[in-house]
Simulated assay, not measured.
Amino acid sequence: MSSDTRDRILDALETLLLERGAAQMTLDNVAAAAGVSKGGLLYHFKSKDALLVGLVQRLGDRARAQLGEARASGSSIAEWYLQTPDPTTQDDAVELALYRSLLATMRTIDASAGSEPHEVQRALDAVMAAWSDNLDTEVDDPVRADTIRLVGDGVYLRALLGLPQIEPARYRAVVDRLLQR
């Protein structure tokens, strides 16, 4: 089985989580949605937790790739963190894939609320910590770094929930102030 199959399985998992919720996320349902046998799914992911960790790792991979592209085009980590989706650009599909991965991942955490932190929670914590560490490294003022992080998280959450975004010129002024331009 190829990495295409692995991605197809993770895509199916995301779709199940987003459309039907964590309660419907069984190995059988994921395998059926991906068009593979349960054995084929287990070839790539040895357990449900391994499947969920794979989802979180792909989220981290997508974020690292997007950040790398942003850095290559001259953006700072803070600018990347504060970005909003722009439906008029080709990159929007890449960004929306990242949002979709994060929302699906959040649904898995929701299902395990109240239990002891497990492998999936630790994997998500590691992804989020890496984003924070990069921001802390770039921004010399820790309070400003936290403000950027909180604003970026709020913008991200609004996009995930499909809420209207702040008027673009006004948001640009917010970003400029946070970046001290």
Rank of each mutant, 00 (worst) to 15 (best):
A111H: 02
P87F: 08
L135Y: 00
R172M: 14
T89H: 14
D176V: 04
A159S: 06
G35F: 04
D28H: 08
E119C: 07
L17Q: 03
L51M: 04
L98C: 11
D140A: 05
E167I: 00
P85V: 15
D49H: 13
E119I: 02
R71H: 14
R58T: 08
V139K: 00
V155R: 09
V139C: 01
D92R: 08
N134S: 07
A97K: 02
L96A: 14
G74D: 13
S75P: 10
M25E: 06
P85N: 14
A97V: 01
V56H: 05
H118V: 03
A78L: 00
A113N: 03
P142Q: 01
L124H: 01
E69L: 10
R58I: 04
Q180I: 05
M106C: 12
E79W: 06
A34F: 03
D146N: 10
L55N: 05
A65M: 14
A63T: 10
D133S: 08
V36L: 14
V143L: 09
R64K: 15
T26P: 02
H44K: 08
G114M: 07
Y156S: 15
R58K: 06
S115A: 15
D153K: 10
R177F: 15
D141G: 09
P87M: 03
R71N: 01
P168V: 05
D49E: 15
R58M: 11
E14H: 12
V174Y: 01
D86Y: 10
R172L: 11
D91Y: 10
A129E: 05
L17E: 08
L178N: 10
G162S: 06
I109L: 15
R100Y: 06
